[in-house]
Protein backbone atom coordinates (compact mmCIF):
# COMPACT_ATOMS: atom_id res chain seq x y z
CA UNK A 1 0.00 0.00 0.00
CA UNK A 2 1.23 3.44 -0.88
CA UNK A 3 2.17 5.84 1.88
CA UNK A 4 -0.54 8.24 2.91
CA UNK A 5 -0.82 11.50 4.76
CA UNK A 6 -3.78 12.72 6.80
CA UNK A 7 -5.49 15.73 5.25
CA UNK A 8 -7.89 18.14 6.96
CA UNK A 9 -9.56 20.88 5.00
CA UNK A 10 -11.42 23.23 7.32
CA UNK A 11 -13.00 26.64 7.00
CA UNK A 12 -14.10 28.92 9.81
CA UNK A 13 -17.67 27.86 9.20
CA UNK A 14 -17.35 24.12 8.71
CA UNK A 15 -15.14 21.11 8.21
CA UNK A 16 -14.87 20.41 4.49
CA UNK A 17 -12.78 17.28 4.24
CA UNK A 18 -10.92 14.97 6.53
CA UNK A 19 -9.20 11.78 5.46
CA UNK A 20 -6.14 10.08 4.02
CA UNK A 21 -4.42 11.02 0.80
CA UNK A 22 -1.45 9.95 -1.29
CA UNK A 23 -0.79 13.45 -2.49
CA UNK A 24 -2.14 16.96 -2.09
CA UNK A 25 -1.70 19.74 -4.62
CA UNK A 26 -2.42 23.25 -3.36
CA UNK A 27 -2.24 26.70 -4.97
CA UNK A 28 0.36 28.36 -2.75
CA UNK A 29 1.05 32.05 -3.06
CA UNK A 30 4.42 31.49 -4.70
CA UNK A 31 3.15 28.78 -7.07
CA UNK A 32 1.36 25.46 -6.85
CA UNK A 33 2.87 22.96 -4.48
CA UNK A 34 2.54 19.19 -4.41
CA UNK A 35 2.78 17.50 -1.05
CA UNK A 36 3.57 13.85 -0.56
CA UNK A 37 3.74 12.00 2.75
CA UNK A 38 6.76 12.99 4.87
CA UNK A 39 6.99 16.43 3.41
CA UNK A 40 9.11 18.85 5.43
CA UNK A 41 7.09 21.10 7.81
CA UNK A 42 5.81 24.08 5.90
CA UNK A 43 3.41 26.97 6.42
CA UNK A 44 2.31 29.13 3.53
CA UNK A 45 -0.54 31.23 2.22
CA UNK A 46 -2.89 30.07 -0.50
CA UNK A 47 -4.27 31.82 -3.54
CA UNK A 48 -7.85 31.28 -4.68
CA UNK A 49 -7.85 28.01 -6.58
CA UNK A 50 -8.35 24.31 -6.13
CA UNK A 51 -6.81 21.94 -3.67
CA UNK A 52 -6.50 18.53 -5.30
CA UNK A 53 -6.43 15.51 -3.06
CA UNK A 54 -5.34 12.12 -4.44
CA UNK A 55 -7.10 9.44 -2.41
CA UNK A 56 -5.43 6.12 -1.70
CA UNK A 57 -6.00 4.17 -4.92
CA UNK A 58 -5.36 7.07 -7.23
CA UNK A 59 -8.79 8.70 -7.32
CA UNK A 60 -8.57 12.48 -7.35
CA UNK A 61 -10.89 14.98 -5.70
CA UNK A 62 -10.77 18.75 -6.05
CA UNK A 63 -11.85 21.31 -3.46
CA UNK A 64 -12.23 24.91 -4.33
CA UNK A 65 -10.74 27.38 -1.85
CA UNK A 66 -10.88 31.15 -2.02
CA UNK A 67 -7.53 31.56 -0.32
CA UNK A 68 -6.30 30.73 3.14
CA UNK A 69 -3.32 28.97 4.67
CA UNK A 70 -1.81 25.53 4.48
CA UNK A 71 0.13 23.88 7.24
CA UNK A 72 2.20 20.82 6.43
CA UNK A 73 3.72 18.37 8.86
CA UNK A 74 5.24 15.04 7.87
CA UNK A 75 2.03 13.12 8.48
CA UNK A 76 -0.64 15.80 8.66
CA UNK A 77 -1.69 18.43 6.16
CA UNK A 78 -4.12 21.11 7.30
CA UNK A 79 -5.75 23.50 4.88
CA UNK A 80 -7.27 26.50 6.65
CA UNK A 81 -9.57 27.70 3.92
CA UNK A 82 -11.12 31.14 3.72
CA UNK A 83 -14.79 31.35 3.00
CA UNK A 84 -14.68 35.00 2.12
CA UNK A 85 -12.88 36.86 -0.61
CA UNK A 86 -9.78 38.39 0.90
CA UNK A 87 -7.64 41.17 -0.41
CA UNK A 88 -6.03 44.01 1.47
CA UNK A 89 -8.21 46.65 -0.17
CA UNK A 90 -11.32 44.58 0.41
CA UNK A 91 -10.60 44.11 4.11
CA UNK A 92 -9.97 47.80 4.29
CA UNK A 93 -13.30 48.36 2.59
CA UNK A 94 -15.12 46.10 5.03
CA UNK A 95 -13.57 47.93 7.95
CA UNK A 96 -14.56 51.20 6.37
CA UNK A 97 -18.13 49.97 5.93
CA UNK A 98 -18.34 48.95 9.58
CA UNK A 99 -17.03 52.33 10.68
CA UNK A 100 -19.25 54.24 8.37
CA UNK A 101 -22.39 52.43 9.36
CA UNK A 102 -21.46 53.19 12.96
CA UNK A 103 -21.10 56.83 12.13
CA UNK A 104 -24.23 56.68 10.02
CA UNK A 105 -22.32 58.69 7.50
CA UNK A 106 -23.01 57.86 3.92
CA UNK A 107 -19.97 59.29 2.22
CA UNK A 108 -19.54 58.12 -1.34
CA UNK A 109 -16.51 55.89 -1.19
CA UNK A 110 -17.56 53.20 -3.60
CA UNK A 111 -15.17 53.60 -6.52
CA UNK A 112 -11.90 52.12 -5.27
CA UNK A 113 -13.72 49.44 -3.29
CA UNK A 114 -15.55 48.30 -6.39
CA UNK A 115 -12.36 47.91 -8.35
CA UNK A 116 -10.71 45.80 -5.67
CA UNK A 117 -13.83 43.69 -5.36
CA UNK A 118 -13.99 43.19 -9.10
CA UNK A 119 -10.36 42.11 -9.26
CA UNK A 120 -10.75 39.63 -6.43
CA UNK A 121 -13.94 38.29 -7.96
CA UNK A 122 -12.19 37.84 -11.29
CA UNK A 123 -9.41 35.82 -9.66
CA UNK A 124 -12.00 33.71 -7.94
CA UNK A 125 -14.08 33.20 -11.05
CA UNK A 126 -11.02 32.09 -13.03
CA UNK A 127 -10.09 29.60 -10.33
CA UNK A 128 -13.62 28.24 -10.19
CA UNK A 129 -13.65 27.90 -13.94
CA UNK A 130 -10.44 25.90 -13.88
CA UNK A 131 -11.84 23.59 -11.24
CA UNK A 132 -14.94 23.08 -13.37
CA UNK A 133 -12.94 22.35 -16.50
CA UNK A 134 -10.88 19.77 -14.69
CA UNK A 135 -14.03 18.11 -13.39
CA UNK A 136 -15.54 18.04 -16.85
CA UNK A 137 -12.47 16.41 -18.33
CA UNK A 138 -12.65 13.69 -15.74
CA UNK A 139 -16.28 12.83 -16.45
CA UNK A 140 -16.72 9.88 -18.84
CA UNK A 141 -18.18 10.95 -22.15
Amino acid sequence: MAMTVHVDIVSAESEIFSGLAEMVVAPAELGDIGIMPRHAPLVTKLRPGEVRVTHPGGEEEAFYVSGGMIEVQPHVVTVLSDTALRAHDLDEAAAMAAKESAERALADRQADIDEAAARAQLAQAVAQLQALQRLRRKLPR
Binding site: A12, E13, D82, T83, A84, L85, R86, D91, E92, A93, A94, A95, M96, A97, A98, K99, S101, A102
Partner: peptide, 27 residues
Protein backbone atom coordinates in the same frame (compact mmCIF):
# COMPACT_ATOMS: atom_id res chain seq x y z
CA UNK B 1 -18.09 55.54 22.06
CA UNK B 2 -19.12 53.13 19.31
CA UNK B 3 -16.51 52.97 16.56
CA UNK B 4 -17.99 50.25 14.41
CA UNK B 5 -20.95 47.94 14.12
CA UNK B 6 -22.49 45.13 12.13
CA UNK B 7 -26.17 44.27 12.41
CA UNK B 8 -28.70 41.96 10.77
CA UNK B 9 -26.33 39.09 10.20
CA UNK B 10 -29.35 36.80 10.16
CA UNK B 11 -29.61 33.23 11.33
CA UNK B 12 -26.62 32.08 9.32
CA UNK B 13 -23.87 34.58 10.09
CA UNK B 14 -20.81 34.45 7.86
CA UNK B 15 -17.24 35.33 8.60
CA UNK B 16 -17.45 37.76 5.70
CA UNK B 17 -19.89 39.96 7.60
CA UNK B 18 -17.51 40.24 10.55
CA UNK B 19 -14.24 41.07 8.82
CA UNK B 20 -14.91 44.79 8.90
CA UNK B 21 -15.82 44.98 12.57
CA UNK B 22 -12.82 42.93 13.60
CA UNK B 23 -10.47 44.95 11.43
CA UNK B 24 -11.60 48.24 12.94
CA UNK B 25 -10.57 46.97 16.36
CA UNK B 26 -7.36 45.26 15.26
CA UNK B 27 -6.27 48.39 13.42
Amino acid sequence: KVVGHATHLGDTPSVEGLIGTVKVMLD
